[in-house]
Amino acid sequence: MATVPATPRRSIWQRIPVIHQFQQSVGLQRGMLVGGLVLTGIFVLTAAFASLLAPYGFSQLKDASGAFDAQQPPSAKHLLGTTVGGYDVLSRVIWGSQTAILVIVVSIVLSIFAGVLLGLVSGYIGGWLDRVLVVVCDAIYAFPTLLLAIVMSIVISGGQSNLLGGIFSAAISITVVFIPQYFRVVRAETVRIKSEAFVESAKVLGASRGRIMFRHILRNATRTLPLIFTLNASEAILTLAGLGFLGFGIEPTSAAEWGYDLNKAISDVTSGIWWTSVFPGVAIVLVVLGITLVGESLNDLADPRLRTRRRAIGIPTMGTESIVPGGSPSALGIGAVARIDEPEARS
């Protein structure tokens, strides 16, 4: 529509999710947000420039001077040593970030599309469709994530596959687990917004059902999605690693995957070979830590009860609470915490 947009209250720059929260944050909260952003940034950059950073290919077993020895401790030639299969650990760790990021992106894009669409339609149309979807999603939601992912992975790939197949089967397995989370959040918001005055007005003006859903409701129902997004990103990595650890990952010749490498390192640990397990494990921990720090900070900043306020530092909590204007921000915040804490609590 060619309408003149209302004067924005904040500049576009400030409305980019993370930037706004960064300016809102203060003290330790800012420290945690920055720490998380730095770790996440390193992860993304490593994945992007894996081919430049990695000394060898992820499935490379020999170079000009001959085949790599298996289970070599860290040395100048292999900075982090070699695995039982003769792969270079450092290269596997670096290439692994690429697999991880691909799986995150594919799974989250798929689950946002499916979950948001289902939640929107279910919440807006209601009726028996809504009831069935809610019961089904609640049932899936209560189920152990990893088990569901295992079943999905068996179905999709029969348990083993090449790079693309492996990434997609892992991503789709994770997607199925995530859909209920997006569904619940978007549906709850849709049900709430549906009864707002502006939706009524749109109906009276004769707007079509689709237009109301996608233009009026969707744009207002997606506020909390960035939070779920970050939390799901870390959960996706853990699920991928879990699948890989149980042997449902991606073949080592197709791509590097941290969970698979850890599985192969179980027997190494018993004989004191630490480098094959410690480095891929630390990679998982750091990436999940970084993304979760970002998510956690965003969550706190969205909740007035948890946000540290610039002007309120040193004043007891009772003082800060009375500053909060009206009930609307805290209503959003409390709802956000309740919803965010749940999905996360079950990785």
Binding site: M32, N263, I266, G272, G281, V288
Partner: peptide
């Protein structure tokens, strides 16, 4: 809080391997 996130961020199998390495082997 960072510790809590670390607990959450560490896959249980990696935690298991580390504990095994430190308390069992070393």
């Amino acid at each position: 809080r960072v510790l809590a996130i670390l607990f959450y961020a560490t896959p249980v199998f990696f935690a298991g391997l580390l504990l095994k390495l430190i308390f069992g082997v070393w």
